[in-house]
């Protein structure tokens, strides 16, 4: 039962993730993204990681995709036409995609993340216990959290600089 559920939701996750890229209608693409996130949440629930699942739904499905839709509707984007890819860009993106695939494969095969059921901790304290999450975020993973936070800050500053008009500062425009 849980095996077939896993295959069903994994397939649905991948299908809807593909639809995000291939659908022409921006609203339909955003909704496929939403479906993909919900299915990922279900996969987390099947791993007994309830907290992670609800965080994913709350932050990404509940707020981020709603913001996407807000922006899409506010700008009233039409499908539009875009220039066909040039040969150089097609070759480059194929190479980049292959490299990414190889990287992920090597990472999955040779890293410590290739854990089997035997090497995982037996207690499911990561499922719901907030304290375990908090402790590991503030000790083991403190540097990645800070780095990602800094990256987000830079991204936000970039968006503000790019989108806002500064009066009397012609060089930015």
């Amino acid at each position: 039962m849980s095996n077939s559920l896993f295959y069903f939701f994994a397939a649905l996750t991948l299908l809807s993730a593909g639809a995000v890229v291939f659908l022409r209608n921006a609203v339909a693409a955003a909704l496929s993204f939403f479906v993909s996130l919900c299915c990922t949440g279900v996969l987390f629930v099947m791993l007994d990681a309830y907290l992670l699942a609800f965080m994913l739904i709350l932050v990404y499905a509940g707020a981020v995709v709603a913001l996407f839709l807000f922006i899409i509707m506010l700008l009233d984007m039409q499908g539009g036409t875009r220039k066909p890819f040039t040969k150089a860009s097609m070759v480059a993106s194929a190479i980049a995609g292959a490299l990414l695939l190889v990287g992920v494969g090597v990472f999955a095969k040779h890293s410590e993340f290739a854990a089997t059921a035997a090497t995982l901790p037996a207690d499911s304290s990561f499922s719901t216990d907030l304290k375990v999450y908090g402790a590991s975020l503030f000790t083991t993973y403190l540097l990645p959290v800070q780095v990602i936070g800094f990256l987000l800050l830079i991204a936000m500053l970039g968006v503000i600089v790019l989108s806002k008009r500064f009066d009397g500062a012609e060089d930015i425009q």
Partner: peptide, 25 residues
């Protein structure tokens, strides 16, 4: 009876906005 009860309520309730967006669009 899960330990993350409140988060569950918030997470699911936050999905309610999609019906309004979808209906409007």
């Amino acid at each position: 009876n899960v330990d993350v009860g409140l988060l569950g309520v918030f997470a699911l309730a936050s999905l309610g906005v999609y019906s309004l967006i979808l209906a409007g669009w």
